[in-house]
Design a protein around this nucleic acid. Sequence first.
DNA 1: CTTATTGTAACAATGTTTGTTACAATTGGT
DNA 2: ACCAATTGTAACAAACATTGTTACAATAAG
Lengths: 142, 142
Amino acid sequence: MQISSRFSVAVHVLTLLAAAVPGELLTSDRMAGSVNTNPVVIRRILGQLKQAGLVEVRAAAGGTYLRRDPATLTLLDVYRAVEAAEPQLFSIHEHPNPHCLVGRTIQAVLDSTLQRAQTALEQELAATTLAQVLAGVREPVS
Amino acid sequence: MQISSRFSVAVHVLTLLAAAVPGELLTSDRMAGSVNTNPVVIRRILGQLKQAGLVEVRAAAGGTYLRRDPATLTLLDVYRAVEAAEPQLFSIHEHPNPHCLVGRTIQAVLDSTLQRAQTALEQELAATTLAQVLAGVREPVS
DNA sequence: CTTATTGTAACAATGTTTGTTACAATTGGT
DNA sequence: ACCAATTGTAACAAACATTGTTACAATAAG
């Protein structure tokens, strides 16, 4: 199963915020216009980003601004903020037969192995900053 | 969203096959007993492993045996067999606003970045063989 | 030919995602 | 103090994937 587009939407939103004039606040309506979705979808994601301390949201006049330096905000921060409810990327079947050698031990073996794979992915996400994404957006592909 | 347990079940099943006496065939019923699920679930996964050339399934008397050397069969082979319908791990939102600089370019930027992350995960999966999993199952944790 | 087994369809239950409407709560500006 | 814009959140629907289940035709070993 694929990782939900919440993550890519969150990166999109943060890129908009990073591209904003310093001090400018963006509304969920405006960001929804760029992502092309419903403002409530944006607000739900903003709630998660806010909880993770990545953004500050002001009701009433204005909206949201970045709380972190794009140069040190990595895609791993975003991923963790948005997938906080599912810290384990891989799901492992729950009740293998304990009377079978394989059934008894497979969970532990898989758990350590798949954790290594997840860590490899996360390290790669940690290697990309929001500033780099913004630079990529601004540079034409040529 | 998590990667489905089809993958961990597939590894479990292949470990059972690798642990079998050479020439022994295992039925879906027997493997379902070890995984603790319904035999049809096992058969569905076996169908995918068969299509990928990892196992040979014989109707009637017997069942399934391994077609690949456990020493060279990696978890990436299993992952690809079972997730063949979803080659992209990350999903990216589909219709960002083309009139916005960020909306116009975010997909391409994310695509290359997330592809690198997926590749890192896959390399880690490729680094573990079925033989290593089997060894892990046999070695007590101590 | 018999019998065990696979392959597959069909269906239900569950859970997640995404989009939507609606509205109370908040707060900045006047 | 009030107004108006905006957020926060609940509630719901549609779509989809997963997992488990029953049922049965197709297959092939002995």
